[in-house]
Design a binder for these strands. Structure first.
Lengths: 211, 211
DNA sequence: CTAACGTTTGTCCAATCGGTCAAAATTTGC
DNA sequence: GCAAATTTTGACCGATTGGACAAACGTTAG
């Protein structure tokens, strides 16, 4: 008997299968939520039997927790990149663009987190109150510096971050609605370009420092 | 045997009980999603037994469908009110304020719809493509008029609407995250006032027509 | 009072769920 | 090539779920 998930997997095949399962779980969890997904669905999506999947993970919760933990860093990377060096407007435009690219290229990850938060974040609330809050507090200070030096308009940095989160993730989380409203002609791939142009203008003009 | 849900309920007690069940279902569905909620939970929340609840509704799907249908009009009311009369900026500020008030006063309704859309809107996709799209198309034309007459900046009306939806509903759908990030001191009731001030400034400045 | 109608409940059922287990199949180390 | 270790599977289990049903309970009109 190996020790399974207790410590790092040993064999190469365990690494690969665990990765395969996590990829399948991302697909299933992001589409149906935690309660709406079944272990069997994940197993089928991973191309293996349910007992086989449970040989690599202790259970449904374990898969979800591993997935969430592994993806959090990736998800927060764009905000981490926001830095004090360079022009504030360029920094903010870059952040918005990166977030929008993530909504376009990783919509499943976005929906996975959205599902979790919507349900009250029962599994990652400590992470939000700890790691995420510290990161945001840090970036809020950066923005306050920009405001003090008059390089962006004086406004609430927290709600500015919320607004960027909301507008960008909207295109991943509410993709169906966006497509439905835009219709077949405007709902194609170009919608992300249109969104990028609009959001950059909105935030740049909206944050232009007053004379 | 009465005809239950086939046509409108006849007795006064049926009206009341159906309303009671829908209120309980809103509470449960918005907190756990459709798949995550059980008929028993709804029955308990409504203060009755499961078979008794099933006497008033054909089944779980029936409750959800009735709830969704009944709430859609309420949910779209703020957008319907957006009108061509009066100052465009005042109209838009009013719309943002109304949407934010709905996020504050009716967070369960917001989460109910968010859950549905997140799962791919399996039950209301036709409504989005029909009723909602027509309404948005209509308001887009109103905004285009404002842009042609130079009263707001020329920009993409569709994505403007998306941005207003996203930023306002964010405070209902991602409430846990907002509270966690703001912390105990700033996460109190005042957060909606702060959000309103920020969003009004962002959109008014962001849409100010260029000279 | 009582018969008809509307309401409520206890009990039950089939399906689905997460998870276990021992045995079979396969891979690996020597 | 072979024994030990790892991987895979079929069969199974208890719990939960949505829903059915007939019997019991209440209510009201005559």
């Amino acid at each position: 008997m190996t020790q399974k998930t207790a410590s790092r997997p040993r064999t190469r095949i365990q690494q690969e299968k665990r990765e395969l399962i996590l990829e399948a779980a991302l697909e299933v969890f992001s589409a149906h939520g935690f309660r709406g997904s079944t272990v069997d669905q994940i197993a089928v999506a991973a191309g293996m039997s349910k007992p086989n999947l449970l040989y690599y993970f202790k259970g449904k919760e374990d898969i979800h927790a591993t997935l969430m933990q592994r993806l959090l860093d990736t998800w927060l990377a764009p905000l981490r990149e926001l830095d004090d060096i360079g022009d504030p407007m360029t920094e903010l435009r870059g952040y918005i663009r990166r977030k929008l690219e993530m909504a376009r290229d990783y919509p499943r990850e976005s929906r996975l987190f959205a599902n979790e938060i919507l349900q009250g974040a029962p599994r990652i609330l400590p992470l939000l109150q700890g790691e995420l809050k510290r990161l945001v507090d840090d970036k809020v200070e950066v923005m306050r510096g920009w405001m003090r030096s008059g390089r962006i308009a004086r406004t609430d940095p927290w709600h500015l971050i919320f607004a960027i989160w909301a507008t960008t993730q909207h295109y991943a989380d509410f993709d169906v609605q966006v497509r439905a409203v835009l219709g077949p002609d405007r709902g194609g791939e170009g919608r992300f370009e249109d969104a990028a142009r609009f959001l950059e203008t909105l935030f740049v003009e909206g944050l232009r420092p007053k004379a």
